[in-house]
Design a protein around this nucleic acid. Structure first.
Lengths: 205, 205, 205, 205
DNA sequence: TATGAATGAGACTTCATTCAT
DNA sequence: TATGAATGAAGTCTCATTCAT
């Protein structure tokens, strides 16, 4: 009887959970939130029944939370390590933007799945949770970075939260377009965005 | 027997359609795309059965298309007229950003509903239609504005489409946060964003 | 307020009823019993609402009864007059078969509509009514013809009802095939069937 | 999660499918095609909801196809084995007619259900499928038999297809009457029809 | 007479979830 | 642990019929 609070999971249980989460990611990316059902997910996971999913997850919310957490953790790796190599806050901002594109290029399905879930998260199951707020991808973390950079005199006198929302939004806008229509040249987009936000975060005379 | 191709609608029919569209907007804004059903909408429209909705609209796609068209038309008014008053492209860009905030402040539910529909529009029923593409709010129109401004020497040498996606995305990001959490000071956000994009669209030396 | 038992109909009412009946025939022939709804019929009759049909007919059963009666009356003309010209019972049987094909060739839609209605008549609204039983097309009348011919020594000693059912069934079988697939050569079919039943009704030695 | 392409069905699934098919047959025979709904069928199958039917069959078309296939398979047994015992084509024709009556007498509900489905099969889901075309009961097979018999000199020079349509139609006509009104003496009908078609397929001088 | 808006029952279908095995 | 059959609520849609005008 799984579904316990966390821990206490056997190796097998974790394997199953991972397998299901992976299948959920693929399904969300492939057919979209609307058409994604336990049935679809279980097919992609080569499970013989949807009961398996209900058995390992308390319900759709938990499954989707786990999907989000998984993707966020992966993004954390890519992005976090990329940012830590930079010494200036300005350098970290550039790294943040570039890392977002790198992740998209490497894991489009994961990005897609996360986007789908966050968009539909109206009950705020995920958004309200700490999982997202603590992620390096979060507006909050980005806002903090800007704030610190401003204190250090690297950035101008803008409002950190608004700028963070703008940067995150701009990234999401470009990412979303790419996911719909792969014609975008990601490298060029990355360069354009880093340049743009590099410019508009400059101290204004 | 409604559901006819277009036109040919009586006064009463149009009134009902409007009423239903309005109820759909409120429902989408209030409980989100997922939970929005004909049942919920008909309750909010004080209709006795969902049959009434099916009677006036061929189905969910038509209803949602009409919702989108309605909101876009309203936005067109606010935004379009605000932009036309400007003479420079740079001025129009500022007006565009400001008008987005004005509309949001005046019609938060409409903005919310439109956002929900466009996000879920994976079948591209609406996105692919001309309704959106021709709207002032569209990335395409914004991109065109930037392109023209660049030709006129008002803007720098950035890629117009990427910048348009970024601006639209930044706006959506801030809007979305406001819709989740009304604590944002919209006027200040507007000022920050106009300043930010005014700066980063400048010709770079 | 129409819907009265019969009579008492004004000229206009009768015109409307005829118009609706005609539209029903076309609809049944074109799209089949299943898809035939008041809505479809009213469109084909250029009526502005299905209310019109309910206003002139007490319901679907009455409408379909009238359709059946109309077609049967037309068939009566074709077939009856054709048969009366014959002097022998054997001649009348041939005439009966030939007239069925003539009618089919001239009024395929009417034949189709009647067939659809009689097939679906499980409540026996029509079959049980006298309209059909009294028709020259009915098995009963055909059976009577055979009986009389037998008494007159023209036919063999078969069971009249069974033979009548067989002849009527054979005609329906060929007709139905023609209605599905117009490749049949009706004249040849008519000749074949007259010959066949001419032979098998002969007095057997 | 059933509804798979074919095979891969467990014992239980097949049992349920059979049960539902049986209930569908009874329902069709009892209340007719029009009134037969998943609701009615599920009641007769002692299922608690119509969802069960949708769970085992992809939809009405699949269910009805299976009903038709089931009945045709049963008829194949009765009729096929009865015909194979005959050595002449003429003998087989007689066997064919007699077997039809035998089947009707033994399985009136099945006959009724099949008749209902084939009559309403306007989309030709079933008729167009090979299930019917390959059945012994089909006009095609009957036509072939007549053709072969004619080549062998056993039958006269009639058109095989027309005669096959006539025989099949005659059988259906008698069968249908019996199903509506059980007063017919099936044995006598069988004798009459075999005699009749024996006579009219004779080589004519 | 005629209109057409409104109704509400009922159809089919999907789905997350439960439960006996 | 895993299976998969079963459930039943909820969803969208169709339709004959009613009724105020």
């Amino acid at each position: 009887m799984p579904k316990e609070e966390q821990a206490n999971r056997t190796f097998t249980q974790n394997a199953r959970r991972t397998q299901i989460i992976q299948a959920a990611i693929e399904t969300l990316a492939e057919i979209g939130y609307q058409k994604t059902s336990f049935n679809q997910i279980s097919k992609r996971a080569n499970l013989r029944s949807t009961g398996m999913i209900s058995y390992h997850f308390s319900g759709k919310p938990e499954l989707y939370s786990e999907v989000a957490a998984t993707v966020l953790a992966m993004a954390e790796e890519t992005t976090g390590s990329r940012m830590e190599r930079e010494e200036t806050f300005r350098g970290r901002l550039r790294a943040y933007i570039e890392a977002n594109f790198e992740f998209l290029a490497r894991y489009p399905a994961h990005t897609q799945a996360l986007a789908q879930i966050l968009m539909m998260d109206c009950g705020r199951d995920i958004t309200r949770s700490q999982t997202l707020a603590r992620s390096v991808l979060s507006v909050e973390r980005l806002s903090l970075l800007l704030e610190q950079g401003r204190s250090a005199g690297e950035f101008g006198a803008f409002d950190a939260l608004t700028m963070a929302l703008a940067i995150r939004g701009a990234l999401d806008g470009v990412l979303r377009r790419y996911l719909k229509n792969v014609d975008l040249d990601l490298e060029r987009c990355a360069a354009e965005l880093t340049a743009a936000f590099d410019q508009c975060t400059r101290p204004r005379q």
